[in-house]
């Protein structure tokens, strides 16, 4: 492949050292992305678990005050709120992981194509 005018203009090349750094970064990025995806799944599961736990607590939670009168504490809706919050956090964490995964995959694809071309 002949270097075009832009490439000559910048004069920065992908040397073997650069390639090694990028390859290593891509490998670790893939690891981080996969771990991140697993964590996202765990956060969603945690959200569902927390949601169902709060919902089950909401029925019949009566407490006695110091003056011996009963008070009913309702956590209705708290379960859904907790589940939504957890899912939002998981969604927020999912996108950086997706970008990392794409970065890693595209770098690997680039080396693969370059090796095939050579």
């Amino acid at each position: 492949m002949e270097p075009n005018q832009d490439q000559q203009l910048f004069g920065l090349n992908i040397e073997p050292v650069t390639k090694n750094h990028l390859s290593d970064a891509a490998r670790w990025a893939k690891f981080l992305a996969i771990v991140g995806f697993i964590f996202c799944g765990l956060i969603v599961l945690g959200g569902i678990f927390a949601g169902s736990m709060f919902e089950s607590m909401s029925s019949g939670s009566r407490y006695e005050r110091f003056d011996n009168s009963d008070v009913e504490v309702s956590t209705k809706g708290l379960g859904a709120a907790a589940a939504v919050l957890y899912i939002l956090i998981a969604l927020l964490y999912f996108f950086p992981c997706l970008f990392l995964y794409n970065f890693a995959n595209k770098i690997r694809l680039l080396w693969y194509l370059m090796i095939r071309k050579a």
């Binding site: 910048f10 040397e15 073997p16 390639k19």
Partner: peptide, 18 residues
């Protein structure tokens, strides 16, 4: 000085620089 060869003719062009 750039004393190492460019790998497979890959360089940083205007788009990748941006």
């Amino acid at each position: 000085e750039n004393d190492q060869p460019s790998l497979f003719g890959l360089s940083v062009d205007q788009e990748s620089a941006a």
